[in-house]
Simulated assay, not measured.
Amino acid sequence: MEENIGQRCPECGSGHLIRDYERGEVLCGDCGIVIEETSIDQGPEWRAFDSDQDEKRARTGSPMSFLSHDKGLATEISWSNRDYYGKRIPHKNRAQIYRVRKWHQRIRVSNASERNLSLALQLLNDDGSKLGIPKDIKESAALIYRKAVERNLIRGRSIESIVCAAIYAACRQVNIPRTLDEISKAADINKKKIGKAYRHLAKELKLNLKPTTPYSYVSQFCNKLNLDKDVIIKSEEIIRRVNETGISAGKGPTGVAAAAIYIAAIISGKPKTQKEISKVSGVTEVTIRNRYKEITGALDLNYE
């Protein structure tokens, strides 16, 4: 039975409703009136007690995915060398299965456009995994890349730069930004090319992304530095006070975030060197020192 299903009893106005799956009824837990009867069970008629049974008994495939050039709708031949019943395929038949699998993969890509899309999406998936980006953000990046292909924005530019620009844009959309240095290092491509490709995509696709703020980088940098929540809270408080003074205007958000973390770590008794913070944030030690002097001067702090 399921209680409190979000409706109200028409007789007494109570919100304490119970759905009885055995009888197919919805009744009030207070006055007992039957509100609905002979309701249809929308679930499957079979039961599964583990993931293997659930997979075998389900009659639907996996959901669509923009990370595959055919959106995951085409069938695939597994490389496990086992048949439908889980039995191993005899050695005398494996060469034949290998040829079938090879030709099946070839016919899934029918032309050069699909081949390039397949290559780009594989590259996007690999770079996203190196950056530790969750699947939903990679899906968003793949959708941005597909829109770029439809608008013919790839012509004259490298696939790698457009892929990295799509990842950068997708991360900014959900306010979990990755710096250009991080993406450049993961994809082994010049960050100036990524920035140029991103500006091109943002203009042509009208992405209208808001500028990043120092708050967006604090948790990410602190996690990499193994700093706890106390340092994160103090860093965000410092950034809030810095924004109120206006000294952060025109300054890079990563530099402000790095300097705030540097100060907050000292206050919390868990200091990190400027070199350690520079390595994680991609901001030079000179910039961290300059932001540190500006912040401590404006907030009347002195931690050396």
Rank of each mutant, 00 (worst) to 15 (best):
G24R: 12
G24N: 12
G24C: 03
G24V: 05
G24S: 07
G24Y: 00
E25Y: 07
E25A: 10
E25F: 02
E25N: 11
V26K: 01
L27N: 11
L27T: 10
L27W: 11
C28V: 14
C28L: 07
C28A: 06
C28S: 01
G29A: 10
G29I: 12
D30C: 14
D30H: 04
C31H: 08
C31A: 04
G32C: 01
G32W: 07
G32S: 11
I33T: 12
I33H: 07
V34D: 14
V34T: 15
V34E: 10
I35Q: 02
I35M: 04
I35Y: 06
I35D: 08
E36D: 14
E36I: 02
E36M: 09
E36Y: 04
E37A: 14
E37M: 10
E37N: 12
E37H: 10
T38K: 05
T38Q: 15
S39A: 10
I40A: 10
I40Y: 05
D41I: 12
D41T: 10
Q42C: 11
G43Q: 11
G43H: 09
G43K: 08
P44N: 10
P44S: 05
P44R: 03
P44D: 01
P44V: 13
P44A: 12
P44G: 01
P44L: 02
E45A: 15
E45I: 13
W46Q: 06
W46G: 00
W46I: 00
R47T: 06
A48M: 04
A48R: 02
F49R: 04
F49W: 13
F49N: 07
F49M: 04
F49P: 03
F49C: 09
D50G: 09
D50N: 15
S51V: 03
S51L: 05
D52M: 01
Q53Y: 00
Q53V: 00
Q53C: 01
Q53P: 03
Q53L: 13
D54G: 03
D54Y: 08
E55M: 04
E55L: 06
E55K: 09
K56P: 02
R57W: 00
R57Q: 05
A58V: 01
A58I: 00
A58Q: 03
A58W: 00
A58T: 14
R59N: 11
R59L: 08
R59W: 09
R59I: 15
